[in-house]
Amino acid sequence: MAEPDDGGALIELVGLEKVFEVRRRVGRLRRARESVRAVDGISFTVERGEMVGYIGPNGAGKSTTIKMLTGILTPSGGRLRVAGLDPARERTRLARRIGVVFGQRTTLWWDLPLRDSYGLVRRMYRVEEARFRRNLGRCVELLDLGALLDVPVRQLSLGQRMRGDIAAALLHDPDVLYLDEPTIGLDVISKAKVRGFLRDLNAERGTTVLLTTHDLTDIEQLCRRVMVIDHGQLMYDGPLSGLHEIGESERTLVVDLERELPPIEVEGARTVRVEGPRQWLAFPAAASAAPLVARVAEGYPLVDLSLREPDIEDVIARMYALGATGGEGVG
């Protein structure tokens, strides 16, 4: 990881904290006050042009961090700078520098053509006409929105709407784009389109992207760097491959045989489940599946097979079990 040089990093967090006071009922009338440390001393820096995956189980503190980065929430402690600004104090100034896409909640105008939502963005952000046309033209081309501009948003599919939302967040040329679950609920083709677009955006415009996701494929295809947060703390900060190594995560080969057979015994994998002619073989995520498939096909009557990637929850759970704390660059 690069050394953070003063003022160079686009996003800089030092010991960021967010403590919520929660009132909980105990007994009939009594209420106890309790402090919940949603974000418990997180430090990291993100350089201009980076594309970072921010992952963790639900309730880990992901969205609380994003809310502080975008200026929605005021931190309880620590230091935070985004694009040289203090997000909580300079929220509206920061808003001009960032784009935010909330995965499941659209900010587009339901009953109006997509085009109208973009018109509002232009006026609200005071984007010059020429720059607006250029940005919209690029988004329309790359996100394949041309045929959709005059369609009321309520008639768009989920994938079309997500592409529309991403375009809306980029018309004012933000330095940073925050995406909250940008591919959730999308079909395979829409997912591929969204990922391709984000990759191009990052490569061509140098837009810094920070995304939260439950889909490891998003991270694999987009992010060189991944941060894992749980219980309000940064558990890992480094490349995805490192996460697999630490978590010793496994992929699963699902094999359909011609008939019911005793558990398959091959080198480099162990059979974890047998259900009729179908068997599940676990093998290290870092290993290649090809030799394993060859070995199985050699010794068994193979009908069909499929491969399952480890999901993030599993990787993190295993990381815990191993007591791993932190990767490179985490204090």
Binding site: T70, G71, T92
Partner: peptide, 14 residues
Amino acid sequence: RDGTLDALLVRPAP
């Protein structure tokens, strides 16, 4: 309640 107020807070407007 439904959290959509946050979307208004990330816009450059009062």
